[in-house]
Computed example of a mutant assay.
Amino acid sequence: MLKNALTGIKVLDLSRILAGPWCTQNLADLGAEVIKIEHPQRGDDTRGWGPPYLEGRGGQNMSSYFMSCNRGKHSVCADFSTPEGKNLIISLAKDADVLVENYKPATLARYGLDYKTLSQENPRLVYISITGFGQDGPMSEKPGYDYVFQGMGGLMSYTGHADRMSGAGPLRTGVAVVDLCTGMYATSAVLAALFQRERTNRGTYIDLALLDVAVALNANQGANYLVSGANPERSGNAHPNCAPYEVFRCADGHMILAVGNDSQFQRFCEVAGVPAWSDDPRFATNSNRISNLPELRKMLTEVFVTRTRDDWAAALDAAGVPWGPINTLEQVFANPQVRHRKLMQHVAHPDFGPVPMVRNPMLSNEDEREIATPAPPRLGEHSCKYAPVHD
């Protein structure tokens, strides 16, 4: 198991919202001691991002947004604009292994909390800055949230219904995918830096920008543009490089057909009762199916509505053809495979009782009791532990 892989690693978390906290939650799940620095009055902005809120004793509430990315952390209140807050953070940084922050460039330098200053006291410190546009360049001073980068990085330009369809136009994803992927890139970068430190005995500075991640997330669509010079077009639920690979309406609902190669298409045609399609020159290869997709889609639409989703599901499963349902979250957490994998777990909190959370996919599902990390903290819950009050 990886639950204790980072035992002994101390992380100073000066990040807020989602990208940084997603990274530090990963580190906490892997066993690191994560000290989350929060403003004494406001705390992390996402504490107020609701409803919904989890209601606790004494009228205390915790937003589900904050819960989603802050489990297993120790909350310490400190205002680094004051001498007391600044000195506390410096003291904690002296024996920290990792510092994660997401303030605008040069903000922390004004208080002597930048990498150059702190690394003089702690040369082994791994320091990662997460910003919208990076530490330098003509736009480095601009603020920005995930939504901005979904548009600016290109993702929204080819996400949504095609121009000729009803409801056409750019569309964002349903979650903050750039923030989440930035958090995952940050996690990988931190782990790599700690591994490198074992060889060099020195920490390092990592400059990670949401814009950079947004551009990298274009993946095959970015490569499609670089190779062809043509901007990808919005194609709704259809895959730009594989066909048929999209949503179809059945007699009683919708399902996803995900044909990834020619042999799968041949098996699908057998299941659908149209074996001749797989030999048709228009559809025999994936490239030809992409070229003739409007015609193929029309034919498939007429076939799918002749059966229920359960009928299609049983036949496609028997033939080894990939398909999937479009589940609500209620259906997701009731799914037998999701339940078998123990993806929903509960962690105990003295004020909120059992707190429902999603298991980190990196960790084993064998024993819930061995996996669960402490619940997300109340604001300042651990301040006395790290900044004890002296008489």
Rank of each mutant, 00 (worst) to 15 (best):
P376R: 12
G229M: 00
T328P: 04
K142C: 01
L2A: 10
P325A: 14
L6F: 14
V338L: 08
I371T: 15
G154E: 01
K385V: 02
T173A: 12
V355P: 05
A243K: 02
S383A: 02
C23Y: 03
G174F: 11
G260H: 03
V190A: 13
H349T: 11
L343H: 09
S166I: 08
A214H: 05
A276P: 00
R234D: 01
A96Y: 04
E38N: 09
G58V: 10
G236E: 07
Y245I: 00
E101P: 09
F333A: 04
N61P: 00
Y147H: 13
V190G: 08
T159S: 13
L30A: 14
I90Q: 15
D310V: 05
P322F: 04
V347R: 11
P40G: 01
L296F: 07
W22M: 14
K86Y: 01
D29W: 09
L113M: 12
L211V: 03
H346N: 14
C23G: 13
S166N: 13
E141R: 13
L118Y: 02
A109H: 02
I371N: 15
A192F: 13
L300A: 02
C250M: 08
N201Y: 04
R378C: 09
P388T: 08
T46H: 05
E55N: 14
A216R: 14
A284L: 08
P40D: 00
D97N: 15
K10D: 13
A284K: 14
V100Y: 02
T306P: 01
F80Y: 15
V11Y: 03
P354E: 14
R110H: 11
P374S: 14
R57W: 05
S166M: 11
G324R: 10
V303F: 01
R369P: 00
K104N: 01
K10R: 15
P40H: 00
L2S: 09
D351K: 05
A209D: 07
E366M: 08
H349G: 11
V247E: 10
V178W: 08
A272D: 00
G353T: 10
M165S: 14
A162D: 07
P388C: 03
T306V: 01
